[in-house]
Design a protein around this nucleic acid. Structure first.
Lengths: 115, 115
DNA sequence: CAGCGCGTTACCGAGGCGTGAAAGCCCTGT
DNA sequence: ACAGGGCTTTCACGCCTCGGTAACGCGCTG
């Protein structure tokens, strides 16, 4: 399950996304994304739970490894940062979906027919 | 019956619908629906009684966890909201059927041959 | 045809969420 | 040690969604 040192590399494939956490690298449609540590970590945790709803609290604890203080908006901010970077590379796709009152869900899907 | 922590997840399958209450998620034909908490709750309770008629009062008490005041139209409104969202994803199907004077019944069925 | 049940839309208050930017922190190279 | 820049965190503003209610009109029932 978890990668052992540098031997077994975990590779997450979610639609046009390919994430290799052990290499601190994420690709969208083959092109490497420039993500910070936090951004990559959050994207990784979302990818591990692709197509499932992850609550703010759970997502925060996964990425920050501590309990989320009430009112903390860090998750929102980083979700946006990911949306911006993903959107700049693949504008026709929506990746992170908001589920009002519940949390977020990673699921690549086209916004509109490619015209 | 109830799910134990994150182990046993209740999954309701009704025709092309698949509802996972513990994940706050409902899928139609595989595609995730964007439902609010009330909408999801109502759909869940209807799914648990699929193909059976559920009275307004019973449905209200299941979802709102209190007695329905006479004249309350909340159930109607939310039935419509579900119909709209379900219809936008699967227009060729009818899901929630009205039983005049009795209540509602969830039963997926095609409206017309798929042409 | 008379009455009531139901479909549908509109409206409002409350709160969640998107967004931009400031401020603080850490890490780097010099 | 110092200066610079990127990353992280926090804050504030405003929009949007949701829940709940009311109102109107059609359709069904008897």
């Amino acid at each position: 399950m978890t990668a052992t040192s540098a031997e077994i590399r975990e590779v997450l494939s979610v639609g046009p996304l390919e994430i290799t956490p052990d290499e601190h690298l994420a690709r969208a449609d083959g092109r490497a994304l420039t993500l910070s540590i936090r951004e990559l970590h959050m994207l990784t945790e979302l990818a591990r739970r692709a197509d499932r709803i992850v609550s703010r609290e759970e997502l925060f604890e996964l990425v920050w490894a501590r309990a989320m203080r009430p009112g903390d908006r860090s998750v929102d901010v980083y979700v946006r940062k990911l949306r911006v970077k993903l959107g700049s590379v693949m504008p026709e796709w929506a990746f992170i979906h908001t589920h009002f009152g519940f949390g977020y869900r990673l699921a690549p899907q086209r916004k509109q027919p490619v015209a």
